[in-house]
Design a protein around this nucleic acid. Structure first.
Lengths: 227, 227
DNA sequence: AAATTGTTCTTCGTATACACTCGGTCGGGA
DNA sequence: TCCCGACCGAGTGTATACGAAGAACAATTT
C-alpha cells in the first residue's frame, strides 16, 4: 500500500504541493486537524513526508481558501468556522448554486443529464446501504458536477472552494441529513433535464433552504470546539 | 538611511511574499505583464529583487486567484481573460453584489452611509477633473466598501478577488465608462441608506447590467491581444 | 512580586544543489 | 527536401541548510 502511494506520488506528474494541499484539506475536513490546532511547517512536512517547501506553498493556498489562518511570525492554525460563517456561507451558496442550476438547465447535454442520473442512482444505493460517508461524497460530487455543467469557470471555482467548507462543517456536525436531502436532488436533476432555467433555480433554492435549516439546527447544538 | 538593504520593496513588516503578490497583481492589472506573457520564477525574482521562494508562494496564490495559469513543468503565464470569462464574471457579480447591496442596506450604520457619501463626493470631483485613473480607483473602493458593510466575509473575500479582475479587464479596455456609472452609484447608495433591501438589490442589478453591457461592447472591439 | 532579561521555538527569507521534464534543435537517413 | 529520433538546455520541482528576527515563556534580578 505504501509502495502504491509512493508510486502515485512519484510517477504521477501532480506537483507535490498539490498533493499536500489536497491532503491538508481532507485532513482538516475530516477533523484530523481540529479547529484551532497549531500547524507548524515542520510538523506538516513530517506528517506528509515531504520537505518544507511544498508545505509552505500549500499553506499559502489553504490560507487563501480559508482553511487555515496564518499569523505573521507565529505560524498557521486551523480556521474555526463559527455559526455565523455558516449562515454567511449558505447566503452565498444560495446565490451561486441557484445560478449554477439555471445555467446547467440551459446548457446540459443528454450526456450530462445521464451522468447526473447515474450519481442519483449510486446515491440511492448508498443510502439503502446506510453508507453515510459515501452518501456525503456523492452529494458533493453531484453538486460539483452541476457547477461544472454550468460552464462558468468563476462560478465553478468559487463554489468549489465554498463546497469544501460546506463539507467541513457537515463533517464536524451533521452528516445525517445527507440521505434526507436526496429527494431534493432528484427534483433538482429533473428540473435541469427539463431545460427550464427558472424551475431549476427554484429547485436549487428549495434544496439549499432545507440544507441551511438543517445545518443551523445542528450548529446550535455547538459542534464548534472551545477553540 | 543606513538600511539601504531594505529599500528594494519593503521596509515594512509585511511578509515578502505578500508584497510580491501585491506587486505581481498590480503589474498584471496595469498591463506591465501582458496576457500570455511568460513568467519564469527567476525572472520575477529578479524583477522584484527577491529570491525564488517568496515568488513561488506568491505565484501559487496568484494562480488560485486566476491571474496566472501554471502549466506543470512549464511555468507560469499571465492568464488571458476572454470575452467569455468577462460574461461569466458579470453573471457571478450580479448574484453576489446584489446580495451585498441587500445586506448592506439592512445593516449599514449612519457612519457607513457617511463613508459612502464621502466616496461619492470624491468621485464627483475626480470626474470633474477628468482624472479617470482616480475615478476607477474610487469606483473599486466604493464597491469594496459596500461588500465590507454587508458583513459577510465570504461574500467580501470572493467578490474582492473578482473585483480585481474587473479592474484588470477595465484597465485593458474601457476606463471611459467609469464617470458614466457614477449616477448609478448615487442611486445605489441612496437605496442602501434607505434601508430597503429590495430597492438596494435592484439598484445593484441595474448598475451591473449597465456595466456589463459596456464591458461587452468594448470587449467586442477586441482588447484581448492576439495572445 | 514585578520588571527585565534570556532562551527557545518557529517562521521568513536566502542560497544551493540536483533530478526531471519539456521543447527545440541538429543531424542523419529516406 | 522532408522526416524522424537523439541530444541539449532552460526551467520547474524538490530537498536541504543556514541566518535573522519575532513571539512566547522561563529565569533572573531588583
Amino acid at each position: 500500500m505504501a509502495e502504491d502511494l509512493r508510486d502515485k506520488l512519484g510517477a504521477q506528474h501532480l506537483p507535490l504541493r498539490d498533493q499536500v494541499l489536497a491532503a491538508l484539506r481532507t485532513a482538516i475536513i475530516d477533523g484530523d486537524y481540529l479547529p484551532g490546532e497549531r500547524l507548524t511547517e515542520d510538523r506538516l512536512a513530517e506528517d506528509f513526508g515531504v520537505s518544507r517547501n511544498p508545505v509552505r506553498e500549500a499553506l499559502r493556498v489553504a490560507e487563501a481558501e480559508g482553511f487555515v489562518v496564518i499569523l505573521p511570525r507565529r505560524g498557521a492554525v486551523v480556521a474555526s468556522p463559527s455559526s455565523g460563517t455558516i449562515a454567511d456561507m449558505f447566503a452565498v451558496r444560495e446565490r451561486l448554486e441557484s445560478l449554477a442550476a439555471r445555467l446547467a438547465a440551459e446548457r446540459a447535454t443528454p450526456a450530462d443529464v445521464a451522468a447526473l442520473r447515474a450519481l442519483l442512482d449510486q446515491g440511492r444505493e448508498a443510502t439503502q446501504r446506510q453508507d453515510l460517508a459515501r452518501v456525503a461524497e456523492l452529494n458533493s460530487t453531484l453538486h460539483l458536477r452541476i457547477l461544472q455543467i454550468s460552464g462558468n469557470p468563476w462560478l465553478s471555482s468559487i463554489a468549489k472552494s465554498l463546497y469544501l467548507h460546506v463539507q467541513w462543517v457537515f463533517r464536524l456536525g451533521a452528516a445525517e441529513r445527507a440521505p434526507h436531502s436526496w429527494a431534493e436532488h432528484i427534483q433538482l436533476v429533473d428540473a435541469i433535464e427539463s431545460g427550464d432555467g427558472d424551475r431549476a433555480e427554484q429547485a436549487a433554492l428549495i434544496h439549499l433552504a432545507a440544507a441551511s435549516a438543517a445545518a443551523f439546527e445542528n450548529a446550535e447544538g455547538g459542534y464548534v470546539a472551545a477553540h
